[in-house]
Amino acid sequence: MKKWLALCAGGLLLSFQVAADQYQTTIEQFQRSPSTADFFDNAYGYAVFPTIGKGGIGLGGAYGEGQVYSGGRPTGSVNMIQISLGFQLGGQAFSQIIFLQDKRAYDAFTAGSFEFGAQASAVALTFGTSAQAGSTGTGAALGKQQSKANYVGGFAVFTLAKGGLMYEASIAGQKFNFKAD
Score class of each variant (00 low, 15 high):
3 K>D: 00
5 L>E: 04
10 G>P: 03
11 G>I: 02
11 G>Y: 02
12 L>D: 00
16 F>C: 07
17 Q>R: 01
19 A>L: 10
20 A>R: 05
22 Q>N: 11
25 T>L: 09
26 T>K: 07
26 T>E: 12
27 I>G: 05
37 A>E: 11
37 A>Q: 12
38 D>F: 13
40 F>C: 05
41 D>G: 07
43 A>R: 11
46 Y>S: 01
48 V>R: 02
48 V>I: 14
50 P>Q: 02
51 T>K: 15
53 G>S: 14
55 G>D: 09
60 G>S: 07
63 Y>L: 15
64 G>C: 06
65 E>N: 05
65 E>S: 11
66 G>Q: 08
67 Q>S: 10
67 Q>A: 10
67 Q>R: 06
69 Y>M: 14
71 G>M: 05
77 S>Q: 12
78 V>P: 02
80 M>E: 11
82 Q>L: 12
82 Q>A: 12
84 S>C: 04
84 S>P: 02
85 L>W: 08
86 G>P: 02
87 F>E: 06
88 Q>C: 15
89 L>V: 15
90 G>T: 02
92 Q>F: 07
92 Q>E: 10
92 Q>H: 06
93 A>H: 11
94 F>M: 09
95 S>L: 03
97 I>G: 03
98 I>K: 03
101 Q>R: 12
101 Q>L: 08
101 Q>I: 08
103 K>M: 09
106 Y>A: 08
106 Y>H: 08
106 Y>D: 02
106 Y>N: 02
108 A>M: 15
109 F>H: 03
115 E>R: 14
116 F>M: 03
119 Q>N: 13
122 A>Q: 12
125 L>T: 05
126 T>H: 14
127 F>W: 15
127 F>S: 13
129 T>D: 07
129 T>L: 05
129 T>E: 12
130 S>A: 13
133 A>N: 07
134 G>N: 06
134 G>Y: 01
136 T>N: 11
138 T>Q: 07
140 A>T: 08
146 Q>W: 00
146 Q>F: 01
147 S>Q: 09
147 S>I: 11
149 A>I: 06
153 G>K: 10
153 G>P: 06
154 G>F: 15
155 F>Q: 03
155 F>D: 04
155 F>R: 07
159 T>Y: 02
160 L>K: 15
160 L>N: 13
160 L>F: 10
161 A>R: 10
162 K>T: 12
163 G>A: 14
165 L>C: 13
167 Y>A: 15
169 A>Y: 15
170 S>G: 10
171 I>C: 09
172 A>W: 06
173 G>N: 04
174 Q>V: 01
178 F>D: 02
178 F>W: 05
179 K>A: 06
180 A>V: 06
180 A>S: 12
181 D>V: 00
